[in-house]
Lab assay of single mutants.
Amino acid sequence: AEEIWQQSVIGDYLARFKNDRVKALKAMEMTWNNMEKKEKLMWIKKAAED
């Protein structure tokens, strides 16, 4: 689920960090860890469908 979420937001994060992939990935990891369980559930369901 986290991978699907990352694939959907990586472009936004890379743009925000001027294509600094290391910073973008760290920010994504922090965002994922801070997400509410119900927000993650949507992505977990999406992962299950694929």
Rank of each mutant, 00 (worst) to 15 (best):
K18P: 06
V9G: 01
K37C: 15
A27P: 00
M30Q: 13
S8R: 05
I10Q: 06
R16C: 10
N34S: 10
Q7P: 01
F17M: 05
K37Q: 15
N19Y: 11
G11H: 14
M30V: 14
D12T: 08
R16S: 06
L41Y: 09
A15K: 12
A24Q: 01
R21P: 07
I44F: 10
T31P: 01
R16H: 06
K23H: 06
K45Q: 14
K37E: 15
L41V: 06
E49T: 12
K46V: 06
A15D: 08
F17V: 02
M42W: 14
Y13T: 01
S8T: 11
R16Q: 10
S8N: 07
A24G: 02
D50C: 15
K37M: 15
Y13S: 00
S8Q: 08
K40E: 02
K26N: 08
E36W: 03
A15Y: 08
A47S: 07
M42K: 14
M28G: 00
I44H: 08
I44N: 05
E36K: 07
K38I: 10
K38L: 10
E2I: 11
Y13A: 02
Y13D: 00
V9P: 01
E49W: 07
N19I: 02
W43F: 04
L41I: 07
E36T: 14
M35F: 03
D20V: 03
E36Q: 05
K38W: 15
K45C: 12
W32C: 01
Q7M: 12
E3Y: 15
A1P: 10
I4T: 07
I10E: 04
Q6Y: 08
K26Y: 08
V22G: 10
A15W: 08
E49I: 09
A27R: 03
W5P: 00
V22D: 12
G11T: 13
S8L: 07
Q7E: 09
K18N: 15
E3F: 13
L41C: 14
K38H: 14
F17T: 03
W43M: 02
A24C: 03
K46S: 05
V9C: 05
K45S: 10
T31E: 10
T31I: 09
K38T: 14
V9F: 05
E49L: 12
D12C: 13
I44K: 04
M42V: 12
I10V: 06
Y13K: 00
I44M: 09
L25R: 07
E49M: 13
K38V: 10
L41T: 05
R16I: 11
I10G: 03
M30A: 13
A47P: 03
I4V: 10
D20M: 03
K23R: 11
S8E: 06
E36G: 13
V22W: 09
A1I: 04
E2H: 12
M42N: 10
N34T: 11
M28Q: 01
L25M: 13
A48Y: 12
E39T: 05
L14N: 02
I4A: 10
K26M: 12
N19T: 03
D20R: 02
E49G: 12
V9K: 04
M28S: 01
Y13L: 03
S8Y: 14
N33F: 10
K40F: 02
K26Q: 12
Q6E: 04
I4S: 06
R21W: 13
E36I: 04
A27F: 08
R16V: 08
A47L: 07
N19K: 05
G11W: 11
W32T: 00
T31H: 11
E36S: 15
K26A: 14
L25I: 11
A47I: 06
D12K: 09
G11L: 14
E29V: 08
E29C: 07
R21T: 08
E29D: 07
D12P: 03
E3V: 13
A47Y: 09
W5F: 07
E3K: 14
T31N: 06
A27D: 04
K18F: 13
A15F: 11
E3A: 14
N34D: 07
T31Q: 07
D12W: 10
W43I: 02
M35H: 01
I4Y: 15
A24S: 04
L41H: 06
M42H: 14
L25T: 09
A15E: 12
R21K: 13
W32F: 02
Q7A: 15
N33H: 10
Q6K: 10
M35E: 00
N33A: 13
A47H: 06
N33V: 07
L14K: 02
N34P: 00
W43E: 02
E49N: 10
A1L: 03
V9L: 04
K45F: 06
Q6N: 06
E29W: 08
K38A: 13
N34L: 07
M30N: 12
L41A: 12
A48N: 10
W32S: 00
A48L: 14
K46C: 09
A1Y: 04
K46P: 04
I10W: 09
R21I: 12
A48P: 03
F17E: 03
D20E: 04
M42C: 14
R16A: 10
M42L: 12
K23G: 09
M30P: 01
K37T: 15
I10Y: 10
M42G: 09
E39Q: 06
D50M: 15
M30T: 11
L41R: 05
K23A: 14
I10N: 03
K45T: 14
S8H: 14
A47N: 05
A24F: 02
K38M: 10
L14I: 05
M30G: 06
K40T: 02
K37R: 13
A48K: 11
E39Y: 05
I4W: 10
F17S: 03
L41D: 15
E29N: 10
K40P: 00
W32V: 01
E39G: 02
E2C: 12
M28C: 02
I4R: 08
W32P: 00
A47E: 05
Q7K: 13
N33P: 02
Q6P: 01
Q6M: 14
W32M: 00
N34W: 04
A48S: 11
R16N: 06
A15P: 04
V9Q: 04
L14P: 00
K46T: 06
A24W: 02
K23M: 14
N33C: 08
L14W: 02
E3S: 13
K18T: 07
N19W: 08
L41W: 07
A1W: 08
M30K: 09
M35K: 02
D20S: 05
N33S: 10
N19V: 02
M35I: 01
K18V: 06
E39C: 07
A24E: 00
E39A: 05
W43H: 02
L25K: 08
S8K: 05
A48M: 15
K40A: 02
E36C: 06
S8A: 13
M35D: 01
M30R: 07
D12A: 09
A47M: 05
M28K: 00
V22P: 06
K38E: 15
T31K: 08
Q6G: 10
N33D: 09
M42T: 08
D50A: 15
N33I: 11
D20Q: 04
K26P: 01
A27I: 05
W32A: 00
K40M: 03
A27N: 05
